[in-house]
């Protein structure tokens, strides 16, 4: 059972993508990062990852994208059993009120990051979201203590009926 938990970034501006990937470098050892420039490509990447027995733990998605927009993609993911548990974060400079409300209501948006972001802020959000994801979906939390929120993970272990074996 060598399944990996991926972080997927969907962003059409290549320089911005570059910066996002760079800021998430620290997570790569535990959560491989995949990228897509538009929603169609994102869907292909997701299918590929799922088909190979891996999972998407977190998706960071721009709103204004060629073709379908980011919120639509997140709504699609919410209606798919393979990605319903994926933590969904909108990273955008320009989603209007209505789009955001739509994302919260229909895509169960987990977080909203407005551009420009800070490295610390972004990493904090990613850390929190992934911590929630592994607590909700993983049995063995120990391996994530180093990279994620160890206190929250410990608390989860405390209540998750840990035994001496």
């Amino acid at each position: 059972m060598d399944h990996k938990i991926y972080i997927l970034i969907v962003e059409d501006e290549l320089e911005v993508m570059d910066a996002l990937v760079k800021d998430l470098e620290n997570f790569e050892a535990f959560f491989p990062v995949e990228t897509a420039n538009d929603t169609r490509e994102a869907q292909e990447v997701i299918d590929y990852i799922i088909d190979h027995g891996h999972r998407i733990g977190l998706i960071l998605c721009d709103h204004v994208l060629p073709g379908k927009n980011g919120v639509d993609l997140l709504i699609d993911l919410q209606s798919n059993k393979d990605t319903i548990k994926t933590k969904k974060v909108l990273v955008t400079g320009q989603a209007g009120h209505e789009d955001t409300i739509l994302a919260i209501n229909k895509a169960k948006l987990d977080h909203y990051i407005s551009k420009p972001w800070t490295e610390k802020g972004l990493q904090e959000v990613v850390r929190n979201q992934l911590t929630d994801y592994v607590i909700e979906n993983e049995k063995n939390l120990l391996s994530y203590m180093q990279i994620l929120d160890a206190e929250k993970l410990s608390e989860a272990m405390r209540t998750k009926k840990m035994t001496d074996h």
Partner: peptide
């Protein structure tokens, strides 16, 4: 209590 559960709980105390 189980040693493990105790440790997990105490970790929430010492990690901060």
């Amino acid at each position: 209590m189980s040693n493990t559960a105790t440790t997990a709980m105490m970790m929430t105390v010492i990690l901060p």
